Lab assay of single mutants.
Amino acid sequence: YFQGQLNAMAHQIQEMFPQVPYHLVLQDLQLTRSVEITTDNILEGRI
């Protein structure tokens, strides 16, 4: 994955969860590489 793709995914998640800091979303995406998994992590309070 290149950074631009991760940034696009992070923006997509931020639209759904504007209360979660962008850098935390991006940090999780770098591990998961998945909008779905990061979204689940937010919903389950891991982020």
Rank of each mutant, 00 (worst) to 15 (best):
N7T: 12
G4I: 11
Q27T: 09
L29C: 04
E44D: 08
E15I: 13
T38V: 02
L24K: 08
E36K: 13
R33F: 13
Q3W: 04
Q30S: 08
I37M: 11
M16R: 13
Q14P: 00
Q19G: 12
M9I: 08
I37S: 07
G4D: 15
E15S: 11
F2V: 12
Y1G: 15
M9P: 01
D40S: 14
Y22N: 12
L24A: 10
V35Y: 07
Q19W: 15
P18I: 03
Y1N: 15
I37K: 12
P18R: 04
I47A: 03
Q12W: 10
L24M: 10
I13L: 10
I13K: 00
I47F: 07
P21R: 05
E15H: 12
T39K: 12
Y1S: 14
A8Y: 10
L6G: 02
L6P: 03
N41V: 05
L29M: 03
T38W: 03
F17P: 00
D40Q: 15
H23F: 11
A10E: 01
Q3V: 07
G45I: 03
F17M: 03
Q12K: 12
H23M: 08
Y1I: 14
M9A: 06
R46L: 08
V20G: 02
L43R: 12
T32Q: 01
V35A: 08
Q30T: 10
S34R: 03
Q14T: 11
N7I: 15
E36H: 09
L31G: 06
V35R: 07
S34T: 02
H11W: 08
M9F: 08
Q27W: 12
P21C: 12
E15F: 08
H23Y: 14
V20F: 11
Q14A: 12
Y1R: 13
I13Y: 01
L24S: 07
D28M: 06
L26K: 03
R33H: 14
F17Y: 08
I13W: 02
T32S: 06
H23C: 15
D40W: 11
L43A: 07
I37D: 08
R33C: 15
M16Y: 07
Y22F: 13
L6D: 03
P21E: 12
V35F: 08
F2K: 06
Q30M: 15
V35H: 04
F17Q: 01
Q5N: 08
Q30L: 14
T38S: 03
I13P: 00
Q5H: 11
L24V: 12
H23P: 11
E44S: 15
N41C: 13
N41P: 01
Q19F: 14
G4R: 10
V35E: 04
E15D: 10
R46S: 04
R46W: 07
L6S: 03
Q27I: 11
Q19R: 09
G45V: 04
L24R: 05
T39P: 00
H23T: 07
Y1T: 13
M16K: 11
Y22H: 14
I42F: 03
R33E: 08
M16H: 07
Q5D: 14
I37V: 11
L6R: 02
L29W: 02
T32P: 01
G4W: 10
L26D: 02
P21Q: 07
P21T: 05
T38E: 00
V20W: 08
Q12T: 10
I47R: 02
Q30H: 11
L43S: 06
L26Q: 04
M9H: 06
L29F: 01
P18L: 04
F2N: 15
G4L: 11
M16E: 06
R33W: 15
H23D: 15
Q30F: 12
G4T: 11
Q12S: 09
M16P: 00
T39H: 05
V35W: 07
Q3L: 05
L31I: 13
Q5C: 14
V20P: 07
E36G: 07
L31S: 09
T32K: 00
N41F: 04
S34L: 04
F2L: 15
T32M: 02
T39Y: 07
I13V: 09
V25W: 00
F2M: 11
R46G: 03
E15G: 09
Y22E: 13
Q14S: 12
L43D: 02
G45H: 05
E44N: 14
T39Q: 06
T32A: 01
A10P: 00
V35G: 04
T39A: 09
D28W: 06
I47E: 02
Y1D: 15
Y1F: 12
Y1E: 15
L26N: 01
L43C: 07
I47W: 06
I42C: 05
Y1L: 11
P21A: 08
I37C: 09
A8W: 11
L43V: 10
Q5V: 13
L43I: 09
H11V: 10
I42M: 03
Y22A: 13
I37E: 09
Q5L: 14
D28G: 01
Q5W: 15
E44K: 14
T39F: 07
V20K: 00
R33P: 02
L26A: 04
N7A: 14
I47H: 02
N41I: 02
Q19S: 11
A8K: 10
G4K: 13
Y22S: 12
N41H: 08
A10R: 02
L24D: 13
I47C: 05
V35K: 08
Q14H: 15
L29Q: 00
L29P: 00
I37A: 10
T38I: 01
T38N: 01
Q14L: 13
D40M: 15
T39E: 04
T39L: 13
Q27Y: 09
N7R: 10
P18D: 03
T32V: 02
L26T: 03
E15M: 13
Q19A: 09
Q14Y: 12
M9L: 11
M16W: 09
G4A: 14
L43G: 03
E44G: 11
I37T: 10
E44W: 08
D40P: 01
E36P: 07
Q3S: 05
V35N: 02
L31F: 11
G45R: 05
G45L: 05
Y1V: 12
G4P: 09
A8P: 03
A8G: 07
N41E: 01
L31H: 13
A8N: 09
S34H: 03
N41T: 02
L6Y: 06
Q30A: 11
D28N: 05
Q30G: 07
P18Q: 04
V20H: 04
T32Y: 04
Q14C: 12
I37P: 01
E44I: 08
I47L: 13
A8I: 11
F17G: 00
A8Q: 11
I13S: 00
S34C: 05
P18A: 04
R46N: 05
L24G: 04
H23R: 05
F17H: 06
Q27K: 09
G45N: 07
M9T: 05
I42G: 01
F17R: 01
